[in-house]
Nucleic acid binder design. Structure first.
Lengths: 139, 139
DNA sequence: ATCCTACGATAGACTTTGTCTAAGTCAAGC
DNA sequence: GCTTGACTTAGACAAAGTCTATCGTAGGAT
């Protein structure tokens, strides 16, 4: 993701301090941050950045396919900078920890035509839920 | 689901008019209603029922395993009375239509041990996204 | 049948997450 | 260095849901 800024410039992005900071935050930690967490880290680098700009920038990055939105719980969306390698998510039902995982095979092939009801399917999302080692130890 | 009320009574539920109405709404239409939609239909039968009660009752039904929560989009949770037959969901990315689907095999078996990171996995949720026949025709 | 009481229902305030708007600012081409 | 339209900002607004204090009632006890 180090050349992210270059790719974005190539797509006609105006390169502002705010956008640079948001990209840096996502690039810096390959974890799944919420918009608010991104904002908090961005404020540390650029105190006057606003919430709206963080939301806008994250939305643009998602539209451009540089970042994935992940909704594993009913709380805030999370942003996953690992957009270029297809993967699914494993979520701890207790502490909310999230790991990227790579199931074998294509989950789409498990859905026979008779179960597609004429839909044109373009995407499959799989979320595995359970307890992480820590939480199952202290259960 | 016709014996739902009996099952609930057997579990020590106090049988109030409000709970009966919520159960009837879910029983009546096997679609995926939001809490607000459930509330609207419940009000039609029992005008003084409150939003909080609908939320509480739905939450209890979910806890009891009688109803499933489905979060296919970033909007409201939906409630699925089809809790006793395992299934996944197929969602239209444009109009939001939801269908229950039954993929072949167990989605869990696609996740090798090396990708489980010590988690105790108890559940898998699969969401297929695409365009329904209507929406792909008018695209 | 009536009474009691703990469980359930209610209205409405509050919270969280996110979107929108109107006005100000600035990156980049000229 | 101007200009201009794309970007940013603060704060109002909105949707979905939770919480709280108070009132009502289902169902067992008498």
């Amino acid at each position: 993701m180090s050349d992210l800024l270059e790719r974005l410039r190539g797509r006609g992005w105006r390169m502002t301090a705010q956008r640079r900071v948001v990209a840096e935050v996502l690039d810096g930690e390959h974890v799944h941050l919420t918009a608010d967490e991104v904002h908090a880290r961005a404020v540390a680098k650029l105190p006057e950045i606003s919430r709206a700009t963080v939301y806008n920038t994250l939305g643009e990055l998602v539209t451009l396919g540089e970042v994935l939105e992940v909704s594993t719980d009913r709380r805030a969306k999370r942003y996953d900078p690992n957009a270029h390698r297809p993967h699914q998510h494993l979520v701890c039902a207790r502490c909310g920890a999230i790991r990227d995982v790579h199931p074998t095979g294509n989950p789409l092939s498990a859905l026979p035509d008779s179960e597609r009801f004429g839909f044109t399917i373009s995407d499959v999302e799989v979320t595995y839920r359970g307890l992480c080692p820590n939480c199952s130890a202290s259960a």
